[in-house]
Design a protein around this nucleic acid. Structure first.
Lengths: 333, 333
DNA sequence: CTTCGTAGTGTATGCGTATGCACAAGCGAA
DNA sequence: TTCGCTTGTGCATACGCATACACTACGAAG
């Protein structure tokens, strides 16, 4: 059924290895032979077998991208640029999720003949880094930093964004500050919390314990946490959210509860996803070059694969605050 | 570097084929041997090589999902259920996009050692079906029907949803009906246009030529098309959108133009994506079991692979109209 | 006591490609 | 004329696993 390089060889009147070399543009093959081989290959519709190639060469030019959850808009948005950049570099993307247990995920990553893995999951306690390291399979962290196992990483440095946001919040006269933070076992949530608290402190503001909620980085969680904050006797007038997706949930909670944004409640996100700029959302948020970060991740893993000895690098993206409709001076006292 | 089945065999004191059989739970291997093999494999951390397995067995248990565009929320939402269902069936997902040219896409699908492909792109003029058929690689259509090449397909039958929507629209007193339809070279957009026109006709309503716009199934396109409709001297009081993502764009256009939804303009989508139900969106839309459709697609392609002779089937999902905040009686005359 | 079936395992081989090495032809320099 | 080098190609083989087939041991049936 399948057309093999041997079939092409027979047709072109050369040996099978010559076909292999000709199609990969090996300089040792004459131009004339290359042309003949290419023509023969095209004629019978030859397409090299990935399996054969992988088994023989030991690599697949295939990169795994492990994400927590595909329903999440954040992950949905990074897939495209990672995919695109990998394509440009001559690699293919293989998507993996954490839908099964920890060990099984690691095993799948290993057994799939991947050349490298981008870990875009946030949880610190995953076994994947350990297993991948033991197996000698290159990997990098996306939007998180190393836990126990060091590796290249891309992150957004939250400080600058939060400093600007906290300043804006103070200048508008907010004093009751709320926060819906990400899960505390993620390096991302930890870094953002530290930066947020420091920025607020610099502005003479404080994040009271009662005004803090924590939960996964998704919309439903943001909705519930915000509902809980709005039910307080003296609810916060502004809520910093772990990321934009959480902030969408905060906006939903406010709308459902008849709380007017931004008059009664201001909301601030993190990530500046495309929808944050939609006229029907107008989310104030901490922005950074997410697409660039995704591209950088693709570059990092490919670099790690093709240049294994290179020093471990941490690519940080600067953040900035973007003020939109969801932030204004508090109207109620 | 890599641990092979031969290493396990040596450790367990059996032959390599016995390892292969034991780990795949072949009934011809004694329980005692299986246990010994499993223990040895675990001890040295053996994970079977996909490449070896693929080359030897001729299949990879890997399914390709070809989507138009990953930025699009519609595609982002189907990936998760397809992935999950394939996982349940013992297959893995390999994502592909149309980011490169037509022929290259087809070639990639073929060369990747996929066992089957789900074509979730809408365009009728893709060469992928032809190439896949020629190669004998099983494939199915998702959310579209066959063009030239027949194959299993899953679609949503738009009629019931549009009949209910048109009825609601008429009962509310709308007479100036607008539409932002999908690209006319997609079977999906064609089917929806026919169903919409028929439903409107049944209600004594008409879709005037001036009130129709067409464009790709994305938010920016919906925004632009709606802006254009709103600039008409007598703009429509309700706009049917090709799908929800387009409808988000319509809502954005209205908000930017100071047009109040639903008082000045009603908006109706198609797909009932999760965000349609958000309090800050409240999109009226034609709903169907999108997750079920994605699951069905996974089931169809696996069925086609494991049972190649079976008759071609077309799984249609029924639609219903869900009225939410974006639809009301027109206030202006 | 022979024959046969069955359970369990090993042997041999193939899948399609890449690559180390051998080899032939051609050419320039000594 | 010979030697050594370059260029282009073929030969042999390896990659890791699955599978057809062969084989052994053993118990049941005749």
């Amino acid at each position: 059924m399948a057309v093999t390089s041997r079939d092409v060889a027979r047709l072109a009147g050369v040996s099978q290895p010559t076909v292999s070399r000709a199609l990969r543009d090996d300089p040792r093959v004459s131009e004339d032979t290359k042309r003949r081989v290419r023509e023969s290959a095209a004629l019978i519709g030859y397409v090299p077998s990935e399996a054969g190639r992988a088994l023989s060469s030991g690599h697949t030019r295939r990169i795994g991208l492990l994400v927590t959850d595909l329903d999440n808009q954040f992950y949905a948005h990074i897939i495209a640029p990672v995919h695109q950049e990998l394509e440009r570099l001559g690699y293919q993307l293989m998507l993996h999720t954490e839908s099964v247990d920890n060990e099984t995920v690691a095993e799948r990553l290993i057994s799939n003949g991947l050349d490298g893995v981008i870990l875009a999951t946030t949880t610190v306690d995953s076994v994947a880094p350990l297993r991948l390291r033991d197996r000698g399979l290159p990997f990098i962290y996306f939007n998180r930093t190393a836990s126990f196992v060091p590796a290249d990483a891309t992150t957004a440095a939250p400080t600058a964004g939060f400093v600007a946001a906290a300043t804006a919040v103070r200048d508008l006269g907010h004093t009751r500050i709320g926060a819906v933070l990400g899960p505390s076992n993620t390096s991302t949530a930890q870094a953002r919390e530290i930066a947020l608290r420091a920025a607020l402190a610099d502005c003479g503001l404080r994040l009271e314990q009662d005004y803090v909620r924590r939960g996964p980085f998704n919309t439903v969680s943001g909705d519930e946490a915000t509902t809980s904050l709005l039910n307080l006797q003296r609810p916060p007038t502004v809520i910093f959210c772990g990321n934009d997706v959480v902030a969408y949930g905060a906006l939903n909670a406010a709308r459902r509860g008849g709380v007017i944004v931004p008059d009664d409640l201001s909301v601030i996100g993190f990530d500046n996803l495309p929808a944050a700029d939609w006229p029907i959302i107008e989310l104030s948020t901490i922005a950074y070059d997410l697409v660039g970060m995704a591209r950088a991740a693709a570059g990092l893993i490919v670099g790690r694969i093709e240049n294994p000895g290179s020093e471990v690098s941490h690519v940080e993206f600067e953040t900035a605050f973007i003020q939109r409709g969801t932030l204004a001076a508090p109207m109620s006292r």
